[in-house]
Simulated scan of single mutants.
Amino acid sequence: MSEAAERLAEVQAHIAGAAQRAQRKPGDIRLIAVSKTHEADMIRPLIAAGQRHFGENRVQEAVAKWPGLRSETSDIVLHLIGQLQSNKAEEAVLLFDAIHSVDRSSLVQALAKACAKTGKRPQLFIQVNIGDEEQKGGCRVADLPALLAEAKDAGLAIDGLMAIPPADVEPAPYFALLDELAERQGLKLRSMGMSGDYETAVMLGATHVRVGTALFGTRS
Results as ranks from 00 to 15, higher is better:
123 Q>K: 12
84 L>W: 09
191 S>H: 08
41 D>P: 06
100 H>F: 04
220 S>T: 14
135 Q>H: 11
133 E>G: 02
82 G>D: 05
164 I>Y: 02
110 A>W: 08
91 E>G: 03
216 F>W: 01
153 D>M: 12
135 Q>V: 12
91 E>W: 11
158 I>F: 04
88 K>C: 09
72 E>H: 14
191 S>V: 01
64 A>Y: 13
212 G>A: 06
194 M>P: 00
42 M>F: 12
203 M>E: 15
8 L>D: 02
165 P>W: 12
28 D>M: 02
30 R>G: 09
180 E>W: 09
55 G>T: 09
191 S>D: 07
33 A>H: 01
179 D>N: 12
95 L>I: 00
142 A>G: 07
207 T>V: 03
126 I>P: 02
65 K>V: 09
135 Q>A: 14
220 S>L: 08
130 I>P: 00
153 D>L: 08
23 Q>L: 04
57 N>F: 13
215 L>S: 00
167 A>D: 07
134 E>N: 12
156 L>Y: 06
20 Q>V: 08
174 Y>Q: 02
57 N>T: 12
110 A>N: 09
38 H>E: 10
157 A>P: 09
23 Q>N: 13
49 A>S: 04
81 I>K: 08
65 K>L: 06
145 P>I: 11
151 A>T: 08
214 A>G: 04
81 I>N: 11
148 L>A: 03
96 F>E: 15
217 G>V: 00
